[in-house]
Amino acid sequence: MYETTYHRPSSVDEAAALSARDAEAKYLAGGHTLIPVMKQRLASPTAVIDIGRIPALIGVEVSGDMLTIKAATTYFDIMNSADVKKSIPAIAHLTSVLGDPQVRARGTIGGSIANNDPAADFPAAVLALGATVKTNKRSIAANDFFKGLFTTALNDGELITAISFPVPAKAGYSKMRHPASRFALTGVFVAQMKNGDVRVAATGASQNGVMRVPGIETALKANWSASALENVKISPNGLIADIHGSAEYRANLIKVMAQRALG
């Protein structure tokens, strides 16, 4: 990798100040998104600001009908959190099928969404549950957060501090793994909110990153069952086509994974 300077701030404010001083600096938590691209010399931040040990960014909280996971909480800690398992077990499940054990030991929820990688798992949960992304500046609704492939609403230097998920009535996640990378070839998160609203999001499928699936949402709202999706048609238009899956195949997977996410 190119030369860089490493910082380990002890607070969010200190991290933000370091970022403000250097427009080419990047935040780093687990590093499992950023370090691989730095190693390939595809990213060359002048400095990396390690937020992975800032106490205010680590932990899980449940308050009323809201599960809040702080940004630098590792996948490992999320999947083993009693609060997560109890309030939104689908998130614990999603985390348990994300990456591999060593990656889960380091990777963080903030890192999973900050990049809007089209094959990352967590964006599906964030969008399907209508979560709120909290930053050191503001709160951003999930609908407004994901702005297309590798693009989010985050401004330069803005730091995700936590993600708050409304606790749904029912939710599930099912994923077809990419045979090589083990990211989501297509993953679907289904959620029935406590107000009866149904939200479904698919990752790995769309050329624009994570997406809602209105056809499935309508069908599931009428009837929360796999059979309700039998006749739903998913258009392959705009879906990713590569050597691992055609757009038609991914369209099929959206439906099949949604059915399986129902449990």
Partner: peptide, 8 residues
């Protein structure tokens, strides 16, 4: 024979 090919 990837899942994609087999499905097709």
């Amino acid at each position: 024979a990837t899942p994609d090919r087999v499905w097709h």
